[in-house]
Amino acid sequence: MRFFKRLIFKLYVLFLMAFTIWYGYFMFPLIFGFEGKEAASTSLLELGGAEIETEEERMFAKLIKEQTQTSRTDLGYKLIEQPYIEGRFHHIGFELQEDQASICVRCHGNVPHDESREIRSFLNMHAFYLACETCHVAEDDGTDRQYRWYNKDNGEVVPNPVAFRDIEESYRTESASFYPTYGNYGAKISPGKEQGGAFAFIHGTKEMAFVERFISEQDRLGPEQKSQMKQVIHRKVSSDPIVCKECHNETDQYLPYAELGYPRTRVGELTDTSVVNMILKYKEFYIPSFLSPGTNDEGK
């Protein structure tokens, strides 16, 4: 008993000594830090020690600085928090949820389409709801392919949305002072197959491990090895994608909308006049090759 009392005493004294040291650190900036310390003043004119010369380099440094910037707008009855995008006039209203689970995004980013000038924004719009491999799928027999939604944060299968609102309108809550779901379903559609009785996405944990390994070790790889590894990583995707009309037509759609939880009205829109007409319009007025973008969207 006496031993334990002494032990507790010594431990308490040691704890107090640690507390004393912590307090010394804690006080230091309070005492010596000038209140006029240059808040948020890391100069843009440094980029890993190198001098910034061109506009692009300036942009790059700025992007790094702005990566976590959010803007807050307090309306008194409502607080809007949204990412800060320089030069943007209209409000977004929520955080743009990034896809953490896709292996493609690790290198290609969330806004991957940039080559085909007329439709790149449309393609990126689709990338918000669809995984890359949904459209850029490599040829296989394709017979038992199935589609599921996966969680953008952890890649796990999530159940189908039960209402249209779940996918596109979920941020419109009547009196909420903020947008609880940030306005999206937080999931993407991705292809997979039945394997040993359980569903598995085409891009599973194995592919993710490949990519992680490749990214962490690419400094040590020779140029040929790199090319070979890229070949392996991209084995299940194709640069020849599914094209617009394969989904947006009235008779036979590539994606099983109803199975994925799309309500009938939305399936109607996607396959009916409003969207299909626009695609036709595009074809007529702008680019004849619009319906097969893969032909001028090569080389990624």
Partner: peptide, 12 residues
């Protein structure tokens, strides 16, 4: 659509 976006010619 929230994903309607691109990177412009200046990288913005």
């Amino acid at each position: 659509h929230r994903g309607l976006s691109r990177i412009d010619e200046n990288g913005k």
